[in-house]
Design a protein around this nucleic acid. Structure first.
Lengths: 201, 201
DNA sequence: GGACCTAGTGTACAAATGACTATAGTTATG
DNA sequence: CATAACTATAGTCATTTGTACACTAGGTCC
């Protein structure tokens, strides 16, 4: 998930703590600060992690200096942004393959379970979402009635619609009065739409 | 040049050295590192500067911790984000006072002459811009025919419309078929719209 | 089973580092 | 001229902090 190679869960946690400190406070933690944060009762417990992080190339250290932890990937800098997961059809169904592009929407939209999709088609036009817009999606398996979702139908296609579960079927309602709703027996919710971004010109 | 108040030449030099270290290396200098850099032969020489810098509000320090220098103006790094300059009316004219809020849209929208406005009203609804959306504006005094602009009319109000200069007047065209265009003799362009951002839920 | 990685506890030590006192030269400012 | 502010030297002290050593324990891999 990060560009870092195979950090263990614990190592990643330590790494994130270091990054957080540097970001929030301007200077990194000491060995003992890390120990306290993670309930480790020996400086050496932390030393192991730091050595591992350095060996794996996540950080660089200057020996015998205090707080001398340097982040190798100016990670946070580059780790900003949401995964641009592909194009989602609002009209005809397209494929939504996960790609590796990223789109940086800054503080307004960022989080571990957010991603972005480019919208294709005009079926949500009356919800003020046009062809070429990007929707920000919060990944989650459920939605409330009437929420706008990215849904995956039985044949594996993804689409952007309003979510209306009915008795024996699910109505995927476009926001376009010239288009008819789609009815499916089953569909999986990929996430709900929490934002829209459009670039003009 | 900085927002810092009346640092002496020496103090400014020390401050810049600290900033440079933090930027380049990721962690700040120790008292003795600063001393060496400036040829000061006693730690106390530096302590005086640090105390002065702290008193003048340029830095913040945690006592008895190493390298614990925090920059108060988190200068370049955290200047991300666009100024949220206020609300712009798309229906009735509102005031667009410059506020101090910021909105971070990341790499997609950032630059020295970009700012954001919250949209008020539905007059651009057919351009898929709804009440409560944010528009990203590139500040510039001119626009091409038909571009969407933030225009300031003679009475000082700002509005979001399509820009249609005509022979003896200017037509400010809403994107709402139930609304009539506004005609003005003169209007100043504050900028053109380069993006739209909407937060849902 | 043995080699190896991860993840610790606990203790101890030496170096790194901030903070302090005392002293003093310089430059403005009233 | 006196006072204050800024800058600096010299040396000392106490704390912070990185590092090392010895030892334990749970995994994985061959």
């Amino acid at each position: 998930m990060n560009g870092l190679k195979s950090l263990t869960e614990r190592q990643a946690a330590v790494y994130n703590f270091i990054v957080e400190k540097i970001q929030n406070r301007g200077y990194g933690p000491t060995v003992r600060e890390i120990a306290e944060e993670f309930g480790i009762r020996s400086p050496n417990g932390v030393m192991c992690h730091l050595k591992a992080l350095e060996k794996k190339g996540a950080i660089r250290r200057s020996p015998h200096k205090s707080r001398a932890i340097e982040l190798v990937h100016d990670s946070v800098q580059r780790e900003r942004g949401l995964v641009l997961a592909g194009r989602v059809a609002a009209g005809v169904l397209h494929e939504a393959v996960e790609q590796n592009e990223r789109i940086d929407l800054g503080d307004m939209f960022h989080g571990p379970n957010l991603f972005a999709l480019e919208v294709s088609g005009d079926s949500m036009i009356e919800a003020q979402i046009a062809d070429g817009d990007y929707v920000v999606v919060r990944e989650q398996p459920t939605a409330r009635i009437g929420e706008m979702v990215v849904a995956e139908t039985e044949d594996g296609d993804a689409t952007l619609k309003y979510w209306y579960p009915e008795k024996n079927r699910i109505r995927l309602q476009p926001a376009n009065s010239s288009m008819a709703p789609i009815y499916v027996q089953d569909a999986r919710i990929r996430g709900v739409i929490v934002g829209v971004v459009r670039k003009i010109g």
